[in-house]
Amino acid sequence: MSQLNKIVLLTVLVSFYMFSSCVSSTEFEVGGDDGWIVPQSNKTHGDVFNQWASHNRFKVDDTIRFKYNKDSVLVVSEDEYKICKATKPQFYSNNEDTVFKLDRPGLFYFISGISGHCEKGQKMIIKVMETESMPDSPPPSSTSSSSSPPSPPASAHKKSNALKTTVHFISSCFVVFAIMAISVFGLV
């Protein structure tokens, strides 16, 4: 293999590595050390889970872990969340250690499935940030006169109260990268 071919292959290899798909995800433990419990007092802790959620930044593919005893967790609609009653939950679990994957941007509504717990504050809204895209050009100027502040970028993803952060390489990209590395460095 000529020196020029090696340089071209090495350049392609480095470029591929830099732009390969790499997804980072974080697992959060709902409620921190206390877990998914009925708040002590609705007057002092009424919004404890929403306060916890507001101190974290969630993105697509993150997971949230609910740890609880003799309880359950449901994903419900906004209307069901408001009335603390689920007629058709989107998700239900009562295994005392539930992991839920945040698979899309937007709002997720969680409530306890035990009668009376939601009314006492065992409910939570999580906002999952839009995925960050590569900026090709400046964003279009807004013609709206809205005074609400912009949402923080997905890169502001906080990891407080996170159990672990993992990085997943798409397997086919990793295999191609490995084959290219062997071919470049094996022939040098």
Rank of each mutant, 00 (worst) to 15 (best):
M1A: 15
L4R: 09
N5D: 09
V8H: 02
L10E: 14
V12E: 07
V12P: 03
S15Y: 08
F16V: 04
S21Q: 11
C22S: 12
S24E: 10
S25H: 07
S25V: 03
S25G: 12
E27W: 09
E27S: 15
F28I: 08
V30C: 11
G32Y: 05
D34R: 14
D34K: 14
G35P: 01
Q40L: 14
N42A: 07
K43C: 04
K43W: 08
K43E: 11
V48L: 12
V48F: 09
V48R: 12
A53F: 14
S54C: 10
S54N: 15
H55G: 13
N56D: 00
N56I: 06
N56E: 04
K59G: 04
V60F: 00
V60Y: 02
D62M: 12
F66I: 10
F66Q: 06
Y68F: 15
V76K: 08
S77K: 05
Y81H: 06
I83W: 00
A86M: 09
T87E: 15
S93R: 05
N95G: 00
E96W: 02
V99I: 14
F100S: 00
F100A: 06
L102A: 10
P105R: 03
G106H: 11
I111G: 08
S112N: 03
C118G: 01
C118T: 00
E119Q: 14
G121D: 01
K123H: 02
M124A: 03
I125V: 15
K127H: 13
M129D: 06
T131S: 06
T131M: 01
S133W: 06
M134K: 15
M134G: 05
D136N: 09
P139S: 13
S144G: 11
S146L: 06
S146I: 03
S148C: 09
P152C: 09
A154L: 00
S155V: 03
S155M: 06
S155T: 08
A156C: 14
A156F: 15
K158C: 12
K158F: 08
K159P: 04
K159I: 13
S160W: 01
L163F: 08
K164D: 01
K164Q: 12
T165C: 03
H168D: 03
H168V: 06
S172Y: 12
F177N: 04
F177G: 00
A178R: 07
A178S: 13
A181V: 10
V184W: 07
V184P: 11
V188R: 11
